[in-house]
Amino acid sequence: MKIIIHGGFFSESTRDPETKFQKQNALIKIVQKGYDYLSTHTAAQTAVYTVSLLEDNPLFNAGLGSQIQSDGIIRMSAALMDGKTLRMSGVINIENIQHPIQVAEKLMSYDDRILGDKGAITFAHKNDFANFNPEIEQRRKEFIEKLYSTPTSTVGCVCLDVNKNIAVATSTGGKGFEIPGRISDSATVAGNYANQYCGVSMTGIGEDIVSGAMAAKIVTRVTDEMSIKDAFHKSFEELKQIDGFAGAIGIDYLGNIFHQESHPTMVFASFDGVELKYFS
């Protein structure tokens, strides 16, 4: 069993030592809870559970504490992909929901598995997801004063369960101040992809990640027998052609865990039952 999670990148306004310490502690606790959950649940179930914990923590830009768009409204996106079934589900620009990743999970059994905007909101309400305001005071302050200059990105989780099945879940509150209706990478195969060979969750600038088809590209290269390390390196080298900004976490079918980022401010933690790794 293996698990790795990420909490996106630090913004210029949240790179202070105390915030780093808080995020580090939060990631350590969440990855350990996720690993414990993985011992009795599938990779897909664990990915949703773990990302839900990240969505509940206002230190991260997903669920509670999501960024505010240019019209003053929070819209969130999330996706789940099960590498065993090759089914992906997601919500795009959903509003007033506590756990977008759980709505994505609910969609997994439907034929129409990716919903956006009002359709996603209506679906959530019909399936008993209560109204929830994810705004926190700090995000409103940032919105009013426009303090930050770099996106705080996304959260994600990749799991390998006891049956060697891989699943990945990704959730985001957006980049902040974007045009309403903007679609990020998180609920696309560029930002969230898995099959029986590898799973990858991305964070960073969504437009760059989509342009590079990053998650699907990395997974495809591992499927074609490239090592996960080489697949990451080659894909990130290609991202440099557009001066792209991204970070990624992944696990392959052999249990190899890997991460890479364009800028050394991505926060992550991984656990395999023996060794806990986290950002320094």
Rank of each mutant, 00 (worst) to 15 (best):
T154K: 05
V210M: 10
D117A: 08
F271L: 03
S52K: 15
I5D: 02
T220F: 15
N192K: 06
C198V: 06
F258V: 09
F60H: 10
K175N: 12
I121K: 11
I101S: 13
I251H: 04
Q260H: 14
E207N: 03
N25E: 13
F268G: 04
A215K: 00
G8L: 09
G173M: 07
K141M: 14
D272G: 06
E105L: 06
S201G: 12
E95Q: 06
E178Y: 06
N256C: 10
T122D: 10
A43Y: 07
S270A: 05
R113N: 02
A216I: 05
S13H: 12
D185P: 00
D56P: 07
E145G: 09
G191I: 01
N192R: 07
L38V: 14
I166F: 13
E275C: 13
G8M: 09
D230E: 02
T85M: 13
N163I: 12
S227E: 03
A231D: 11
E135G: 12
D82E: 04
L86P: 02
H263E: 14
T170E: 11
S270C: 04
L80P: 02
N93V: 02
H6E: 04
E237I: 07
I242H: 00
D128W: 08
T42V: 11
A269L: 11
I114Y: 00
L38S: 11
Q32S: 10
Q260R: 15
M214Y: 00
T172E: 01
D243R: 01
I228L: 14
